[in-house]
Each structure stands twice: as structure tokens, then as C-alpha cells.
Write a protein that binds this DNA or RNA. Sequence first.
RNA 1: GCCCCAGUGGCGAAAUGGUAUACGCAUCGGACUUAAAAUCCGACGUUGCGAGACAUGUGGGUUCGAUUCCCACCUGGGGCACCA
Length: 1010
Amino acid sequence: MVVVRATVSTYMEIMRHMAFEQGNNGQADVPAEPEYRYNAELAQKIEDKWQNRWQQQGSFWAANLDGKLTDGSGKHADGRTPYFVMDMFPYPSGKGLHVGHPLGYIATDVVSRYHRMKGENVLHAMGYDAFGLPAEQYAVQTGQHPRITTEQNIANMRRQLHRLGLSFDDRRSFATIDPGYMRWTQWIFTKIYNSWYDPEFVRKDGGTGSARPIDELVGAFKSGKRTIPGHETESWESLDALEQSDVLNDFRLAYISKSPVNWCPGLGTVLANEEVTSEGRSERGNFPVFQRELRQWSMRITAYGHRLIADLDMLDWPEKVKLMQRNWIGESHGASVHFEVETPSEPKDMKVYTTRPDTLFGTTFAVVSPEHSLLDSVPEDWPSDIPSEHRALWTGGYATPAEAVHAYRLEAEKKTSKDRVDEQNEKTGLFTGLYATNPITGAKLPIFTADYVLMDYGTGAIMAVPGGDDRDYDFATKYGLPVVYTVKPLADADDDLSNYEGKSAFVSHDGIVINSSTERTERLGDALSLDGLRVDDAIARVTAWLQKAHVGEGTVSYRLRDWLFSRQRYWGEPFPVVYDDDNIPHTLPDNMLPVNLPEVPDYTPKTYDPEDAETNPEAPLSRNDEWVHVTLDLGDGPKRYHRDTNTMPNWAGSCWYYLRYIDPDDSRHMVDPAECEYWLGPHHNETAGTSGGVDLYVGGVEHAVLHLLYSRFWHKILYDLGFVDSMEPFHKLFNQGMIQAYAYTDSRGQYVPAAEVEEHQDGSDTTYTWNGEPAFREFGKMGKSLKNIITPDEMYGTYGADTFRLYEMSMGPLSESRPWNTRNVIGGMRFLQRLWRNVLDENSGEVKVVDEQPDLKTLKLLHNTIHDVTEEMEAMRPNTAISRLIVLNNHLTSLKAVPRSVVEPLVVMLAPVAPHICEELWEKLGHADSLSSTQWPVAKEQYLGKDNVTAVVQVKGKIRGKLEVSPDISADELQALALALPAVQDHLGGKPPRKVIVKAPKIVSVVPQL
RNA sequence: GCCCCAGUGGCGAAAUGGUAUACGCAUCGGACUUAAAAUCCGACGUUGCGAGACAUGUGGGUUCGAUUCCCACCUGGGGCACCA
């Protein structure tokens, strides 16, 4: 039985241990390591040296065209191609980093260094996304102001990242909390607020629909070119300020509305849809979330739904992320159908949304959501024609429809979002006493209210087709409503309808319409028959018919909701908005920005019993009266105003930070237009495509919809308004995998420190013990609670930053998740040591390379390696690139003397991954320049071919022989050689082959007679 | 339920229609050493004395040839989920 420590254990530790013991025994000195051996201690020295030198020399500064960050070359950074590579904005948490965090940062650093060596002008910077809930919660726990703890966290994270040797342009670093940055976040908000979406506007890229200044809309109202919704007969001037404000509010891209929002009493704030899990709980804190009608800020992201889907086609993103965005936006094409409803006061128009207008003939009732406005117009008494056997169920036992509706609304409000949308739940609902008229058949349909219909999708009302829809079928069954079948699935086209008795027919698009015709009527005109049509044809025909009869039209609907933009928290950007005495909002002019956070007696959010839905948000910013109530001159003399006390969500700051990297100190622009065009404009280099945008954006897939969707949305607004000229923010997206880790439990299921667990191998069985007791291995994330955290600091101490970088880059493909295994790190260390020894003598420190010409075999290996490594780097596969470099280095190790002309390109090619040791070797090899400005090697064509290749001979797909042949052997010659092989003859059994496939010079495949 | 991705030695993995297991870890053997570490050289899918046979989650298919392409299933991971 062999005992292996599963922990960080290198010969270094063992040596130190021995030194300690022997010192105690007063015995002979430890055999000293060679003085110039590449070990953790030396690595640390080298790393410090180069990190300082890079910083002093500004080795990684990206040159702007003009301004403070220009390199003075006069034009376009000396004509170099720009390359913009970014990591996702990190959140400086108080917990510090573990070895999983820097994976993406190392990857982008390798890419950055590689592109610099290709002679490009590389922009690579790192800032901090510093507002948000965790910072606030951490501050509450420690009793300090979030600004203090956040700044400490940023400093700590900077230190840890610096130690990795990342090649950032440190002049371009900032945090979202910096007033100079926040000012522009607020400025962008005012631009969005003062814009509306004109669906007819033709953009410069040829597309239709664009954000436009709200003044253009006001102009159209004034000139009468556009009628004023809700005031169709009035002139703009005849409306008072409040009415004007309300009208514009319905058009603005940032607007205030009283609508059902996600209220989370446990966090004391409202949340965006994207921040609520499918369990109906908050993503942060896992508290229940309730639907409540509250006045809140929203952003009209739905106006961009179509462009956000369509423009994905321009992007070089993982298909998986594109798909997630498409699904999240959920564009569906259908029709809005108008049903007339008799109410006590007047006839009303009830619009329903359906993707299947072809099933209108199968509609047997209608359902509106509990929040629907129609419920304000229910009759005073129950109609007399309620089927008596269903009366109790339909009325819920309430005396009047109004009472029933009121009670049902209250009940719906009390349910969590989860309870409301849980498919498992039995459908509930009540009759409203109202009837709708089917516009096609004239049939009278009872209208129910039920919470399975959602107010914020479609129109909040549906035509129920129990013959085709499972949900409607469930409801119809419970409430005794009739079922009519109007579509036969194509597969069952010959079946008669009795086959569908007792179930819904699940109406797929693959079917034939039946039972769907009507005569010409006085009211609606033409007769309509869909019978016998395929579903898609029927949809087209009925939609055209509805449109002609003015009782409906084709519409597009989105699953995506407008983005709820306000939060009732302290640690976020304040809204640059004040209200006058009439409560009309005004955005603050540019010269009054930024609006800084006020000091408040208590920045803790007001939270409630997480289950108590009957509570209201209270914004912490409202606790400072002096800040809230101000006198300002907004152009019409000093007046009293009160400030908006909400803060923006965490996403605001991360929506546009990439723009600020380009031009971080500009006090006149959000980003200088010329710099922005150079770095982001479409075709700014060959990889950016027509969309333009950041050349490479690396981050976790967890932001697939949230950050990446919001950021695209803002970018498109800024594009429409002419502030940026790329259509998309991020041209290429790459999702790095997660580094996972083993965790160990004892027999009671408690986690034990993973670093102290011992691994035992007994034959093929592996067992684990901790403190002599059996332990059990599981696989998951790295985290404090699992007691399996390994920090970068530990890795620096035992191996150095280069080995750590090398290990992370070599452990597997970047996009895959995989377990961390400290035991394997030593392999990278050994590689670096062997390379070190190939260049210099460990004992003397003297460079030992020779200037003689390498042999042909070595040259061929070198140039093939250059060729292949270049390919691997382009494809972001550092793992395979590294393995090729190891092969080359192993070959050098086997030579009697190491040729300079081979080891130098090897050092250059390894530099992106292990920059410090390579810089040191490069210097020792006699070069004065930093590797960061050294050219990437180019493979020489004449060494890429091979003298002899091994041709494989297969019979019926099995290898029966190998031949060493010249690479330019003819097919006939190779075939003859192959057929002459005794093994081939044996397998042919004396008969001539049926067929021979020759792919000279690599393969001969012989097919024997049957 | 719907959609997407993955499954290869003891382990991390390589190979995208043409020699399966490159590279690294672990393990074993050898050289060096008084000894150990380090280093260097070598072995290392299973089975068989061997020729060989069998092996890329399972079962089929296409092909002269399949880890790679197609179909079905199993397992694991992820996304969406009363969206009309």
C-alpha cells in the first residue's frame, strides 16, 4: 500500500523539512541546491524584477491616437492594428481570490501578449464593478461605510492580480464608484430618458427603428404630424405640463410606471425579472419574490427585442449563449384579435394575443389576468345563464361579480411568483359575469379571470382553446366548459374526432384545420373557411381576414419584459433626476453631474419579514432630508425640487465600462468619438466583422443573459444616438470553464479540510483518510464552506506565478470546466526548470547555449512547432500549444548542446504563458529589449515538409503494415509496395483485392474480395 | 416537459473521417548516489508466452476506414419552463 499526500508537497517543502531536522541534530549541512536552480524562491525574485520593470517602462501601454494616452507617434499609434481584449468586469468581493478566479484573466493575458508580439496595438485593461449588494452587505456586517470596505477590497484584488504579472495598461483602470465614471453613467441615463423609440426611422446602416431625441417627438406632436395618444383631438400646447409629461413618459426609453414588479421584502428592494430565479426567489439571498403594483423606473428594452435577436447573427459568440439570448427574448409571431365585450356602461374592446389565430373557431371561453382593467367593469349581478351545476365553482360563492373579482385579485397578490406560475398547481379562477363575442363566429363566450394568464405577456387576455391547449383544457375540464377540436395532427389525419375525446389534441404546427368555416355576415363581410388547410396557411389566411374586417392584426410578442431599473438600496448610482412640486420628473443637466451619494444615518436597507408581501420599499437615500430637498435653477429660475431616492441596479456600471477603457480620463466626452472609432468601429481590424466591438471578451457563461443583454441594449441606444459607431459592444465572446475542486466529508457528512486529506492507493482502489478516519471524496465548486479553497498566494509561494499560469493554461481546453489538482502543478514547474537548464548552467549561472547550426531534425521540429503553436494560439488553445513547446524542449534536453537559434524562438513562444522566466532568459541570452516588443517567430516553409513519412497499410480498415516512404511517392508506387507486404497477402488469401484506396503518401486501404 | 452541451487509460487530457491514448501527473524499472532527494534513461489501455484479439458511455447505421458523421438509448452538466 502506497501513501501519497494529496496536498501541496514538493521537494522544496521536503528539503526545508530536512534542513530543520538535520539542523536540530547538529548533523552535516543539507546538500545545497545548485545556486542558480529555478525554484520558487528564484521565480519570485525574477517575477518581482520584471513586474517592476514592466511598470516602470509602461510596457503594456496601449497608444491612443491623441490626448494624454497617445504614444506621440502622430498617427494611429504608428499605424499598428488595434486589438481590444477584455475580461468581464470583476466584482471586488471581500473574500479574496481562489485559484479558480484568475483563469480567464490569465487567458486574456496570454492572448494580449501574443497579439503584442504580432505587432498589434493591444488595449488590455482592468477595472472594478464596485457598486452592489454584496459590497453593501459586507459593509453592514463589518459596520463600515461601503466605500471604505470596497476600496480595501479593490486594493487587495489589485495586489493579487499584479502578482500574476498580468499585462494591463494600468493608466486605464477605474471603478464604477469613481465620481468621474459615475458622472457618465448618470449622463447616459439622461440620454436614454430623453429619447424615444421611433419604429419607422431608417438608420444609417439601413435598418429600421431607432432611438431618437424626445424633442423630435414633441415636434411631431406640436406640428400635428402625430396625434397625441389619449388626447387625440387636442393640441400639444393645450395640455398642461403634467399631461405632457405623462404622454412623453409612455414613449421615453427610461420611464416611470406603476405596474406589477418583483417585490422582495427580504432584500427590501424590487428586482428585475432577470434577477428572479425560476423558483420565484431572489438570485441574491434566495428570498421569496412577490408581484406588486409599484411605481418604478423601467427601461424600454422590449423596443429593441427584434434587433437584439437579429444582430446576434453578426457576432462571433458561442452558439449556446446566442440561443440563451434568443430564448430569453422569446420573439413570437401571432395576432392580436379584438373581442367585443358588453359591460354595464358601454361595449368594450378586449384584445387577446394568440400565436394560433387559426384556432379561433375552437375558442369556447376567454380568460383575463387578475390585473386586467376589464375587471373594473364587471356587472352588478351574476348573469342568469350560469349552468346551475357549475354555479358554485364559477362564482366562488360570492354574491356579486365585483366581490368575486376583488377577492381573487387579493389572493393573487398574496401569492409568490413561484406559487402563481407553478405548472403543478391546479388551475384556479372565477367567472367575471362578462361575455365576449367571437369576432368570426359571433359566439358568446364567458370571460373568466385566472392567474395562469399573466398581465405582462401579450395583452393580459387570452382566447381559450381547450381543444388545442393543455392549460385551457385543464381549466375547461374543471369548470365544465365545452371543448371544440379544430386541428387534426397530420399524422392522425385519417382519425375521427373521437380520438381526441377526453384530452387536448396538442395543436402542433403540423396539422390540418377542420371545423373552421363561417358564412358571409352583414357585420364582417366575407365568408371564411380554413377547412383542409395546413396550419401555417390557415394562420396567414385568417390573419388577413381579421385585418380586412378590422377585428385584429398580425403582431409580434416578446417574452422579454421591460427592464426594471430602480432599486431601493444605498450602494448604487443615484438617479440624476429631481421632481418639481407637480411631481414632474426632470433630468439634471450635464454641469450638475455627478449626483453623489449622500451621507445617511443608516445605509442598511429596510428589509422585512421575507414572507410578508404587504410591505413597501423604502429607499435609504430618503433618510437625508437636506440632500433630498434642493433648490436648483434648471433654466427657469431657482425652484424647489426633491430628488429621486432610488439607486440604479448593479448592471448600470457594467453596461458601458468597455467604452471608458478607451478614454478613461475624458471630462468632455463619455468616450472620444475618434478614439472610439479606432478601437471599436466596424472593420477596425480584420477580426471585428461588420458589427465592430471589442475584439475578444472573456468571461463566465453566467452572464449570458443579464449583463450581456443589458450591455448590448445600452450600446444600441448609444449607437442610435450617434455616440458610438459600432452596432454591437462585443464582437467575439469566449466563455471560459470553471475550475472545480474535490471536497471531502467524514463519515458524518461534515466537510473536512481538503488539504489535510491523505490519499491511499491499493491496486486500482483509491481511498481517503483524514486524521486516520475514512473520508469520502466529492466534486464541486471551490469554496470556504467546502473547506477546499486554494489561493493564488499559496501557488506563488510554492511554485511562482509563471508555473501557476502555466498550469492553469495547460490543464485542459479553456472552455471546459475541470477539477483543480495541486499534485499536477509540479509538471509545469519541471518543464520550466528543464528549459532554464537548457539555457544556463544551474551551478555557475553561465549561459551554455551554442551558436552552431542545429541538425536538420531539430530544425524541422522547430519550424513545425512554430507553425503549430501559432495555429493553437490563434485558436485560443494554450493547452495544446504548451504541449508542443514541451516536446521541443524535451528534444533540446536530449541534445549534447543546445543551439541558440532553436532555444530563442522557444523562449519567445513561451513568453505569453510564462512571461517572467522568459524575459529573464531572454535577457541572459543577451537581448536588451523586453519580450513584449519582440516579434513572434515565423516558420520557414522549407523545414515544414518531412523527408520520410510512415504510410499505413490497412486491410478492411485494420492496420496490417507500415511503410517508410518518401513524401512525394506516387499512388501507384505506394500501392505496389503495400500489396507486396506479406501480411497484406495473407489477409487477401491469395485473391486479388476488390478495391484499393490510396491516399499517398499517408495511407493505403485494401478491400478484399467478399 | 422543451432546448443545448458532454461522456476516451489510475487521473488532467490529445486526436474533427485516415497509425486512438500526444503532453503532463501518478505508478514501476534502471543509471547516478554511502543513502535519499533532485536529475537523466526506459516501461506504462485490457488480455495473451506469442502471432494476435478486444478497447473512445450502450446498441444500431453510413463508409474501404468512425472517438470524429447519422439514428435510438443510458449517464452527467447547463438553460428555459402556465409566455397563450
